[in-house]
Amino acid sequence: MSEHTTDPATERFIAHRNLLFTVAYEMLGSAADAEDVLQETWLRWVEVDLGRVGDARAYLVRITTRQALNRLRATSRRKETYIGQWLPEPLLTTPDVAEDVELAESVSMALMVVLETLAPTERAVFVLREVFDVAYGEIAAAVGKSPAAVRQIAHRARRHVEARRPRKPVSSSEARAAAESFRRAVESRNPQDFLDVLAPEVVLLGDGGGAKVAALRPVVGAEKVTRLYLRGSERVDATITCESTVANGNPALAVRLDGALDGIMALTVENARITGIYYVRNPEKLTRAEVETPLTLR
């Protein structure tokens, strides 16, 4: 056997690895936790008799879902003691993610934040059904519920998410233009530049995790967000620069202090104005902020 030859179990796992990571990440909002889930999935997968597996993709998704659901229940308790607001870990994504409208929306920070408001089983069912189009029977096997119960959970979760997610999708060019205007405002520190690009009802969520200063509660309104940023920048004894980037398939800014990454601002745009700012400064959540992460729905 050639030293480059891999066994069937490894080949099938590698073929679906990006999908499994995406499933785990959408359920957990953490790349580190998603990687741990993939390791747990692999350890269980190598013990499986492949001769009894008809659909490797479905089988692997089922294992991943079970492991992610266990971890999600544990992390839900951990988040209760988190200092300030808990935001999903931003991922620097490859260009194909931004070009795939369905994928970009499913991993957007706006939707990921909404998913955080679901109970663990609701989140698993929503992600598998609405994002990955998994059959109800497969979902039932993964979450340990009957197909009828899964249908009810899916309906309830869908209504919950639809009531809270952004309703007016914009083109990628419009989103990039708004992000660029916001970048110029951040660097110029001109109040009017902020007010020109921020929607009146804009909401800023910050995540410092106790390691860095961040808003402990949502900041609502263009004037309040502008004042908060200007006051904060006045206290910083460093050169602030911003780079346009793509996080979670959507426009974002990488904020740097004297060249060192300080945080990622993921943005939501509606009607050519920014309606949501998700500013992640917790260093533990910035490990994927400068290396592209491949995501996929297939």
Results as ranks from 00 to 15, higher is better:
K168E: 14
K168D: 11
P169F: 11
P169T: 11
V170F: 04
S171Q: 08
S171K: 08
S172M: 06
S172F: 07
S172R: 15
S173H: 04
E174S: 12
A175N: 05
A175G: 14
A175T: 03
A175K: 11
R176T: 13
A177Y: 03
A177G: 01
A177W: 01
A178N: 06
A178F: 01
A178Q: 03
A178C: 09
A179I: 03
A179F: 03
E180N: 10
E180H: 03
E180K: 08
S181R: 15
S181D: 11
F182G: 00
R183F: 01
R184H: 10
R184G: 03
V186L: 15
V186C: 06
V186F: 13
V186W: 14
E187R: 02
S188E: 07
S188T: 13
R189L: 13
R189A: 15
N190W: 05
P191N: 15
P191F: 10
Q192D: 15
Q192W: 08
D193C: 01
D193E: 15
F194A: 07
F194D: 08
F194K: 04
L195M: 13
L195H: 12
D196A: 13
V197Y: 04
L198P: 04
A199Q: 06
E201F: 07
E201W: 04
V202Y: 00
V202A: 15
V203F: 05
V203A: 04
L204K: 07
L204T: 04
G206C: 04
G208F: 03
G208P: 02
G209K: 02
G210A: 13
G210R: 09
A211R: 15
A211N: 02
A211T: 08
A211H: 09
K212L: 13
K212M: 11
K212W: 01
A214H: 11
A215Q: 02
L216N: 00
R217C: 00
V220Y: 03
V220P: 05
V220S: 03
G221F: 01
E223V: 12
K224E: 12
V225E: 01
V225S: 00
V225W: 00
V225H: 00
T226C: 12
T226V: 10
R227G: 05
R227C: 00
R227V: 14
L228Y: 13
Y229W: 14
L230P: 07
L230Q: 06
R231P: 02
G232A: 09
